[in-house]
Design a protein around this nucleic acid. Structure first.
Lengths: 247, 247
DNA sequence: GGAAAATGTACATATATGTGAATTTATCTG
DNA sequence: CAGATAAATTCACATATATGTACATTTTCC
């Protein structure tokens, strides 16, 4: 069950992140199609908690820097090592495509860092974007780091859907693709989940965290180059990952 | 009316900002005394929206960097000029007390930037902290920038409460205190709102934004020095505020 | 300056939502 | 490796909550 008012808080935050200027109660209510009275309650709640204020008289509400203060506190803990951002930054620059660091979240994979391609036609992904773990290159690069039991446990919760012609729609299909990925040396996906999207990914274990790196873009552009891209990812990881004695 | 589930989202965020490590459903439910099923729904909603993930297997949830990404987008708009942080930073260093930048939010005043005192006994304020606009030095420094009509409009919404012995409990009392502040050259408060707390504040108009600076601390420590502190604030503003031809 | 329009606020009520109990899944223990 | 224990999920129902309606306030426009 989705908690509507919880989702609405996030929607409001995203709304402000987009419009980047104060908005009145009426504007917000109209934008979302919410009743004024409900909007009033929600804004009052956020204000009362110190997350919204009125920067200038009669110009409406805007989030306080409290969001930022909280987000900073949260993110200063086990941040990604700085070389991982360098990694996707370099990969995006060299390939011209979108590169991301991905982490597991149940049956989904979440983008936790993204450097977007600058091309007009590109894979549009944002931090927080989620994709099915079994039907994407980045997700499968996470699954490769799981034990068989852990994978089985994930499989049980997956609802297999035919997102595209090549989507694996059974446990065996996923396991087969994982085996292929191992022998191939990298994970790939050709519109397994998103239409026209192809990508290459490899596992990126950091400490006890299971992450993956993925480079993805429009199939027509990146498709033929997937093996090269995969090799580039591997080389770039080798170059940037700090050398340690332990594996 | 307070929107419970909206508030809960903020509580969860603050919880993670505090504990700074992943937490399982059970831990979160226990911490807040929420039913597990409700907690489940909330966490599912936040996860689905890309704000929560599972950094490592079976170690529970943690916010994704999406919070930070959103908060950055929001805060990169009309940020405070950098000299205002320098201002409160210097003030806190010189006085040993907590210094803040404050903005209006209806009948309340919100702290939008804070540098805390390092003393063991200190004014504990955080960004987002709210105080009544009429019963605090910082709030009255905001009211001084309002027109009479605007102030009247605010007064109509205030519920006058006797927070402390010196709290102004009528419109006249507030107006009188404002007049005194003008002739005095700064705003002050001696436990008008918070017990044992004294502070000095002055208006800080920036562009068309109405802000104020306040230095506050325990009454016994800062009380006798309030005039000096006020003078220091004024001097420091003069020193740091960029000179422009226009007023 | 006065009327009209827009915006913000309060409240009762129907309904969407949170929750307790039951079920399933995972983890620990001997 | 069972059996026990704890955690995560599901679901139907009572209730807390979102909202339609009415009212108040503020702003706009003539």
């Amino acid at each position: 069950m989705i908690v509507r008012q919880a989702a609405n808080v996030l929607e409001i935050m995203e709304f402000f992140a987009q419009v980047k200027k104060p908005a009145t109660l009426a504007e917000i209510a109209d934008h979302f199609g919410w009743p004024r009275s409900s909007t009033f309650n929600l804004l009052a709640t956020l204000s009362e908690k110190g997350y919204l204020y009125e920067p200038r008289p009669r110009a409406g509400f805007y989030p306080t820097p409290r969001w930022l203060a909280m987000a900073r506190m949260i993110s200063e803990v086990e941040p990604l090592p700085s070389w991982t951002h360098q990694l996707i930054s370099d990969l995006s620059a060299e390939t011209g495509e979108t590169a991301s660091i991905v982490a597991p979240a149940g049956v989904m994979a979440v983008f936790i860092d993204v450097v977007e391609s600058k091309a007009a036609i590109r894979y549009f992904a944002t931090i927080g974007h989620r994709v099915p773990i079994h039907a994407t290159a980045s997700g499968r690069a996470l699954l490769l780091q799981y034990s068989q039991e852990e994978r089985d446990s994930v499989y049980r919760k997956i609802e297999f859907k035919q997102y595209g012609p090549s989507t694996p729609i059974s446990i065996e299909a996923v396991e087969t693709e994982l085996r292929n990925s191992i022998s191939r040396g990298y994970c790939q996906s050709f519109a397994d989940y998103s239409r026209d999207l192809a990508g290459a990914a490899i596992p990126l274990p950091i400490g006890d965290r299971r992450l993956s790196v993925v480079v993805a873009g429009p199939e027509f552009r990146i498709g033929p180059k997937v093996p090269d891209v995969a090799a580039l990812i591997a080389r770039t990881v080798d170059r940037l990952r700090p050398k340690t004695t332990a594996a």
